[in-house]
Computed example of a mutant assay.
Amino acid sequence: MVDEKMAAHLNTAETVTFALKPGRHLMTATVLEASGLCALGVTKAAIARQRSIEILVDVDTTRKYRLSYPTVDSSPVIEPAF
């Protein structure tokens, strides 16, 4: 989600680009559902976990972030990517 609005549904190895206005934005990642091998051992508590970070968008600047789930029962990780 971006600024508390659903912005994308991503599967493994997918990428997405957002054209955001300059300023502060809130980026949130959460598991909505899991399928295939990723669903093994997934609990409702894991699906309910989410992680949010505040990002600052500058004019004419591209910022990249990486989203990952270290383990099935962990919260997502959103970190800058270079």
Rank of each mutant, 00 (worst) to 15 (best):
S35D: 11
V72A: 14
T28K: 15
G23S: 01
L67I: 15
T28N: 07
K64R: 15
Q50M: 13
T43D: 02
A7E: 03
L32C: 09
H25S: 05
R66F: 07
K5P: 01
E79M: 05
E4R: 02
H9P: 01
N11Q: 11
P22M: 09
R63Q: 15
P80N: 10
S74A: 11
A45Q: 08
R49A: 01
V31N: 14
P76R: 05
Y69R: 14
T12L: 12
E33I: 14
L20T: 04
D60I: 00
K64G: 10
A39G: 10
L26H: 05
S68V: 05
G23M: 00
N11V: 07
E54H: 09
A48I: 01
G41I: 08
R51C: 01
T30W: 11
Q50N: 15
M1F: 05
R51I: 00
N11R: 06
G41E: 09
M27L: 15
S52P: 08
L26Q: 09
D58Y: 08
V59L: 00
P22V: 10
A19H: 14
V57F: 05
H9M: 08
D73S: 06
V57R: 10
R24G: 11
T28D: 08
M27A: 06
D3M: 05
D73E: 06
V31D: 04
A19P: 02
T28Y: 10
T62C: 02
E33Y: 13
E79R: 01
A34R: 09
E4N: 06
A39V: 12
D60L: 02
T17R: 12
L26N: 01
R49V: 01
A46M: 05
L26W: 03
M1D: 03
T62F: 00
K44F: 03
P22Y: 05
I55E: 11
V16G: 04
